[in-house]
């Protein structure tokens, strides 16, 4: 199985659905240790991503112009232009970097692994966060690494493993003390709360697993 245009679109649509369905939960997490807008900002961004996908479909864009890389890069640009805050540039740059790494009409598991690595690199270079800083990196890093390790088992298995790793990474942010972003102002008081960005990253990987499930 390869990541083709249909699965990439399904990934983005599933991510949008998840962000919308879990908006209140993301906002509640962000209210505890941030400024309470993570859910509404991501919903606004992914709603715009959906509108972009729909417009392209309605406009009858040629298949060659809807490769996985082009779809991801376009979604990234939309997130940068609509989300604001830190999560807009971070998710937007991640998807753009992944998109740039996927030039073909479809991509095998190894190529997807490399693209996810590029995405993680973009997040880390823009935000400067290390694993353990209680940020989205704590979900991205194990997810990307697990995907690469499991790539030999195929796209569906690697995606499922990465989603589980992202989920576990997000849960592991609970006891951490934040060292980046707005939660860092809380110092020790940030411990005992999940990082909202790590949780939304887990949603993104769960959406990838859903789009790449064996049917």
């Amino acid at each position: 199985m390869e990541l083709d245009t249909a699965r990439t679109e399904a990934w983005l649509r599933a991510a949008a659905a998840a962000v919308t369905a879990r908006e209140a939960e993301l906002t509640a997490l962000d209210t505890a240790i941030g400024d309470g807008d993570h859910g509404s900002n991501l919903r606004r961004g992914f709603t715009a991503v959906l509108a972009g996908l729909d417009a392209e479909k309605a406009g009858g864009t040629a298949a060659a112009d809807r490769s996985p890389g082009i779809l991801l890069a376009a979604a990234g640009r939309t997130l940068i232009s609509t989300v604001g805050g830190a999560s807009g540039p971070l998710y937007g740059s991640a998807l753009r970097a992944a998109g740039r790494a996927l030039p073909g009409a479809s991509a095998g598991p190894d190529e997807v692994a490399a693209a996810l690595g590029e995405a993680l690199g973009a997040v880390r270079s823009l935000g400067g966060a290390q694993p353990g800083d209680k940020t989205m990196v704590d979900a991205w890093a194990p997810a990307a690494a697990t995907f690469a390790e499991a790539a030999g088992q195929g796209l569906a298995a690697a995606s499922a493993a990465a989603a589980a790793a992202a989920e576990q990474g997000a849960r592991a942010t609970l006891p951490l003390v934040a060292r980046k972003g707005r939660a860092s102002y809380l110092g020790p008081r940030s411990a005992g709360h999940l990082d909202p960005g790590a949780v939304s990253t887990a949603l993104l990987f769960a959406a990838l697993a859903e789009a790449c499930r064996e049917r």
């Binding site: 400024d35 807008d37 940068i80 232009s81 609509t82 604001g84 805050g85 830190a86 807009g88 540039p89």
Partner: peptide, 11 residues
């Protein structure tokens, strides 16, 4: 001006 308590976007 960005959204309430949210930075503006690069555009």
């Amino acid at each position: 001006p960005g959204e309430v308590f949210t930075s503006p976007v690069p555009d």
